[in-house]
Simulated assay, not measured.
Amino acid sequence: MSEVRYSVPGISCGHCVSAIGGEVRQVPGVTDVTVDIGTKLVTVQGNGLDDAALRAAIDEAGYEIAG
């Protein structure tokens, strides 16, 4: 199992958490997603995680990854 983190400055409320979590959970290999409003970090755990697919899922939810 691996873990990746993304800084997403636009996270500000429960809707953000739900939207990002819902999209990222659909990516194959994802076993857990944590979206933290305080740190503005999205932490994804899973097997064989595809960085491009995870980034696309966050984008699909309407948010941009910093950097």
Rank of each mutant, 00 (worst) to 15 (best):
R5L: 11
V17C: 13
D51N: 09
I11N: 02
I20H: 02
V4H: 10
V8P: 11
G38L: 00
V42T: 01
V44G: 06
M1N: 10
I20T: 03
A57F: 05
L41H: 00
V4G: 06
G38E: 13
I65D: 11
V17S: 12
T31S: 03
I37G: 10
G62P: 14
E64C: 07
R55I: 12
Q26R: 15
A57I: 10
Y6D: 04
M1I: 05
S12R: 13
R5E: 15
K40F: 00
C13Q: 13
S12M: 06
C16V: 10
A56W: 00
G62D: 11
V30Q: 05
D50C: 01
V8I: 10
V30K: 00
P28F: 03
D51W: 05
Q45H: 12
T31I: 01
V35P: 02
V33D: 05
V44P: 06
E23K: 15
V24H: 10
Q26K: 15
V4L: 07
L49R: 03
G29Y: 07
D51H: 14
L41T: 00
G38H: 14
V4E: 11
A57E: 06
H15K: 06
T43S: 06
R25G: 04
G22E: 08
Q26W: 04
V33I: 14
V24G: 10
I37D: 09
G48D: 02
G62W: 12
R25I: 09
I65N: 02
V27F: 00
G67M: 08
I20W: 01
L41M: 15
I20E: 05
L41F: 14
P9Y: 03
V4T: 00
A66P: 13
N47S: 06
E23S: 11
V27R: 10
T39Y: 07
I65K: 01
E64D: 03
M1D: 07
Y63S: 13
S12A: 14
Q45D: 13
A53G: 04
A53M: 01
V42L: 08
D36Y: 08
G38I: 07
E23A: 15
E3T: 14
S18C: 00
A56D: 13
G22M: 08
D36N: 14
I11M: 09
T39R: 07
I65V: 15
K40P: 14
G62T: 09
G62K: 12
H15N: 08
G22N: 12
T39K: 11
